[in-house]
Design a protein around this nucleic acid. Sequence first.
RNA 1: GCUGGGGUGGCGGAAUCGGUAUACGCGACGGACUUAAAAUCCGUUGGAGCAAUCCAUGUGGGUUCAAGUCCCACCCUCAGUACCA
Length: 809
Amino acid sequence: MTYKHEIVEKKWRTIWEKYHLYKATDFDKREKKYILAEFPYPSGSKLHVGHCFRYTMPDIYSRVLRMKGYNVLFPIGWDAFGLPTENYAIKTGESPKETTKKNIGIYREQLKMMGYSFDWDREVNTTDPNYYKWTQWIFLKFYENGLAQLKEEPVWWCEDLKTVLANEEVLDGPDGEKISERGGKRVERRMMKQWVLKITEYADKLIEGLYTVDYPKSIIDAQINWIGKSNGARVRFLTDKTEIPIEIFTTRIDTIFGATFIALSPEYPDIEKFIKEDYKSQVEEYITKAKNKTEVERMQNKEKTGEFTGSYAINPFNEEKIPIYTADFILPGYGTGAIMGVPAHDSRDYEFATKFNIPIKRVINPIDQDSLQQMPFEDDGILINSQFYDGKTSHDAREEMLQWIEDTKIGKRETHYKLRDWIFSRQRYWGEPIPLIHKKNGEIEEVEEKELPLELPDIEDYKPTSDGLSPLAKIKDWVEIKDENNKIIGLRETNTMPNWAGSCWYYLRYIDPKNDKEIASKKLMDYWLPVDKYFGGGEHTTLHLLYSRFWHRFLYDIGVVNTQEPYKFRRNTGLVLGSDGQKMSKSIGNVINPDQEIEKYGADALRIYICFIGPYDGTVTWQEAGLAACRKLVEDIYTIHKKVSDIEDDHKIKGAINIMVKNITDDIEIFHMNTAISEIMIFINLLKKETKVSKNTWKIFLRCIAPFAPFITEELWQDINGNKEWTENNSIHLQPYPEYDPKLESKQITMPIQINGKFRGTIEIQRGESEEEIKKQIYNNRKVSDYLKNKNIKNFIIIKDKIINIVTG
RNA sequence: GCUGGGGUGGCGGAAUCGGUAUACGCGACGGACUUAAAAUCCGUUGGAGCAAUCCAUGUGGGUUCAAGUCCCACCCUCAGUACCA
């Protein structure tokens, strides 16, 4: 009879759930481990195998830790605010609240079917007022500390989504145009007054923190890059209109003797003051054209353009007179919006100078003088044509020049960042209301803490509009705050928070999800923080992962949490492609639905296959045949169980299971679940050849694989132990994990023999065998000794218990 | 362009420190069972060669007793990012 997974899995799921088998215990004496995987967005489409890929490995890891005696917190919740739900509501007329509730129900059921060992008592939901009360509370803390501000600046507006987006939410589309992260719709620049969170003030702290955590190099580099810190200098150039100087920003002050022009962005304030009468018409035309170009057009046309203003600036280092241009490759938002052009040592300046016939003056020679000198030369080197500084290295010259500009007050050291402040308001309905009130007198007042949560009102019409106002603006009685005489004294802020807000601190709420006095108890946070292992998508590198590090560091600074970094360790989840090698998508029709696979093969088989499919952080391809093979493995286990009897341990099997335990334990430690599964297969292949299997061996085996296949192992464990009734204490999932016993390691080993580096055969020796004995064995081995006939042995290399290499002359 | 991964059989992929390359699985081939097929089970399976043997980890060099692994140069590919001075 074949194994009936549908019956077994349902039975155990119900029992485990009833007894809260996987609950984490606050303040427990056992060492704590906080294992976290990014919580899902419960969208209209059901759970995806991608989700299974994300959660299966951390679940197995958590299960192993639990069996090894740790107090494990492995929680789950719902990141439910955001556009997809709202768009769905607009389309169907069902309220986002209803949709969310329904979807969460489906997702929860599916995750339970997979047998994940979440502590369901700690479930959180970002759209629950008891949750977002604290999201709003943290926002107010930002506001009170001057880190939430209303700012008028160019923002990305998406006409399709009818809201502004943060820099991090804007991606490059296939044609080089800017598109939204959600939905891939076109975005454009607009000047708007928006709430920002001043993440820029945390730029240095966010960089420094990266040196204290264990993240993949790719994430660390990407975040450092995104923050884009550059140390440089602000230098004042006097102009022939002496009363108005121009301040430029440069990181290469060592090249300043090579500056042959100045370029201002078309948006440069007071630019018109530099435009000489004779040049007025063409410069003004250029500026108007540049300003009307969209960001996209301006960047797509990489060819340098610009206009001479007719004015000149004086280089403070050598008093040279250099022309002032305006050019649209100078960005208004970075540095001072003005640069010194050094064509010999900057490729963009070089391009510009070549086009406008501006002199190119070399001031840096490569240290390696004989390499042919190419233009432009952008590396550091030795200064030439720089008067007093000639012969100095770029590094030394920079230091001395910075000192000089500070002494003479013509400039100062300055640091700039690519990172922009986080645009934090959205003109959409389905998000946390920003708890602020705009008073009649122009002041802004916080919603009092005792009035939190400021609940999102139920409304009929969620539709966003193009006027830059949120749908909440239409609900008069919610927006208008009146005094006792029914006079309007203030208006509520109607923008909502971005969908990233709730996920910035969810890992804190898991620690104390029902606390109504604070975001979580300080003592509990001291106990559980930081998160020991964090798993999630690589697409969040410069979004959620950066944002939540920022929030956490801020909470640390105001004394709410006790660690500077939220996550000690991070690994990314890879991507599951369809069997055609393409990204799974409904339109292609290659999406795999976990429900159907569970129905057909069982959750145990699916879990095993998800491990076996490939490395956790890799891009893997779904293959139905692979899943079928894993189902076969489950059936093999079920079949072998019938061969278990009261016999003595076989020596060979005992050694084999010991090695399996070692290899699996090592693999799990480094999250190589695919090779752990192959170890299981190797051992099963061995047992298939046996007619009987000892109880002792089988018990070790079942405990070893229980984290991978929790259902069948519980079933067989109860059976083999003859338990009449399941109790928490006899559940396999709370038994100790098997341990490797070095004493059982076989004394006899197979040594490979190489002759001149080529493998020629093996000999059987005892561990730690003497050189003489090994040599004797080699000469006794016909195959190997044949190679040595009539040869001088020049070198005889023994790597203990590993390999032997004989070098002949 | 820059940054970070990769490149190993027909395919998915293994290979702590440099130490038997191709584990495990899929597929393929051969066989058993069957009237037959499916399922299952047992073998074989990197390439060339009758064989001894030789050749294979993107390409070309190098270091080493020994290189998929380390060093140099290059090619291809995936991801991120990009006029940031």
